[in-house]
Design a binder for these strands. Structure first.
Lengths: 335, 335
DNA sequence: CGGTTGGCCGACATCGCTGTCACCACGTCA
DNA sequence: TGACGTGGTGACAGCGATGTCGGCCAACCG
């Protein structure tokens, strides 16, 4: 099909013909290389301007072997947690003159491997991935691809890549300590699907903090995946308990929303500390105390680590744990 | 530099050598083409598996002239409005086996042109863009690029591309009508920066609806860009007016947040209809009545239009206006 | 047994661009 | 006047994959 002679964008050869020079000279002009007489260069530039020529960036792929593009694989772009991560990664990528290809597995952990493969097929130079599962990828196509991978938010067992995590243990501890300091003794935990490492980490820290603070009873825990109904049920039972809970800790932003809705519907006035801060936290009544992890900073950090690798950093894989911060707004107080 | 012999990913030639066949045969196996004896194919596949070979997708660029990638240019990925758009576009792209490159101009309208050029340099097959300004691009490099562009959320004057908009006029009318139906006669409008077309549209419709409903006085309007202080000032003045406002309409999600904070700080109990729905709207006290436009659906629609073009649709450019929906939650009632 | 299929496979050109090197036309200097 | 630089240019190969076409060989035919 030679039909695409002049269908889309002009090629260097066309410019060269038009300007009565060789392709190479056009190349030199385009790349501001020396060794072109000023008048020749101007003639070429004029033709480039007239034809609207742009050099095909995709070609860098096959010459230098790099695409100046990194990939980001997350679960779901619509979730603010992930979109803020994307914003952070994108910002860092732009600073390095890189592009970002985003791909989401749309809530299906199993799709993530396919997504990563697709990114590698596009020959991205590196990948930031929020791993869906923690079983090692063990995919020769992925491991042998030569593209550095940075895991974000969740580790992968035995993986030999850099990992950027949030301090789930510390964050959860601060949440429980805050509630206990306000006199709560019976605290419930609404966690996300224990399939997620972060959910389990937070649950474990929730329980461990109870032990370390010397609280007598094992606190009630309800892990997800949660629906509005499952949250209502759990909260209803905990409130009806002979020794009712006076506070709950939610395990992530999704659960927090469900919990706030459920509390309102049930007419319960429990204290609350939310894991994951959210923009409107201070506007809910009462303003929600939250464990703040900065997803944008997480994305930036992960991208920074990735670019260090791309720039030749050969040191052994590191695991970086970013701190969290408890933002006290009032919902933790005893009522 | 022939140093990159076997640094990154294996090439077809390497696989071919390993399997003692020609490059072409490897190509046939990879593409599931007929004409390869089963045992030969199996041998090749074995080598492919062992070496982790993946064909370089970037090459499609130079052969077919398409990259199977579309670009999305928005202002800021961290804003839920844009990230939901991105989710919609990405979803649609995946359905067509396309990838999505996202690029954000990070709040700098002037950067958008550069961003679009960068996308074109990557040779994306098409672009969805939320235009920063409404002055025509008039960039020969962009127009002559041959890549279809779809404008989303805001039109560009005299542009000859498809445009997907939200029904700002109808949405704002429904907001004002709702408030008036609840007995409000003095309503303030906190709009975003009038540099944005949507902001002006909503202001105009706000005013026009007042006229069409026969309200006597011209309502107070404060356009952005807004800060917490500017919102507080406006609300304070309106409340102190001899004929004080009893309700406000906010112009977009950012202004809504600022307004909710300001109302709380000022201790004002004004009725409110928010433009742009948000997840926690029903959790604010009172639950916020909002004009709901579905950014994900907008993104999907824009991508659908784009793919129609990529599939050869040559019909004249269309403008599609998506309806909005007023979600009544209570904050519009007179207090 | 020669000729004709048809299955399997490889050589080669090609895509758009860049690195390398040869080349030509001038000047300069001995 | 001939050897030697030097700056400006172009021819050519190659990057990694695919389409085209043609070659080889076994099987089958008359």
């Amino acid at each position: 099909m030679s039909a695409n002679r002049t269908p889309g964008r002009p090629t260097m050869a066309e410019v060269a013909a038009e300007a009565h020079v060789s392709v190479k000279t056009v190349s030199r002009v385009v790349n501001h290389q020396a060794g072109v007489r000023p008048d020749t260069a101007e003639r070429v530039r004029e033709v480039i301007r007239r034809t609207g020529f742009r050099r095909a960036g995709g070609l860098a792929t096959i010459r230098e072997g790099r695409t100046f593009t990194i990939g980001l694989a997350v679960e779901e772009l619509a979730n603010p947690f992930y979109s803020q991560i994307a914003a952070g990664v994108e910002r860092e990528a732009r600073m390095h003159q890189y592009h970002l290809i985003t791909a989401s597995a749309e809530n299906s952990p199993n799709r993530e491997r396919a997504v990563i493969r697709a990114l590698l097929a596009r020959r991205v130079d590196g990948i930031v991935v929020v791993p869906a599962g923690e079983t090692p990828v063990a995919d020769p196509e992925v491991e042998g691809a030569g593209a550095p991978i940075v895991h974000l938010d969740r580790p992968v067992r035995g993986a030999t890549c850099d990992t950027v995590l949030s301090d789930n243990v510390g964050g959860m501890r601060s949440a429980v300590e805050h509630l206990v300091a306000h006199g709560h003794r019976r605290i419930g935990f609404l966690g996300d699907d224990p399939e997620f490492w972060t959910a389990r980490q937070r649950r474990e820290s929730f329980l461990a903090t109870h032990v370390s603070l010397g609280l007598p009873r094992t606190p009630p825990v309800a892990m997800g995946p949660h629906s509005g109904e499952s949250v209502r049920t759990a909260l209803g039972e905990w409130a009806a308990d002979p020794e009712p809970v006076t506070a709950v800790v939610t395990g992530n932003n999704r659960v927090t929303v469900l919990t706030l809705v459920a509390l309102r519907h049930l007419g319960l006035d429990l204290s609350l500390v939310a894991y994951d801060d959210f923009e409107l936290a201070e506007l809910v009544d009462p303003p929600v105390t939250a464990v703040h992890q900065d997803p944008t900073a997480m994305g930036e950090k992960a991208a920074q680590v990735l670019f260090a690798r791309l720039l030749g950093d050969e040191s052994p894989p590191r695991t970086i744990v970013l701190p969290t911060r408890l933002v006290v707004r009032g919902s933790g107080r005893r009522r």
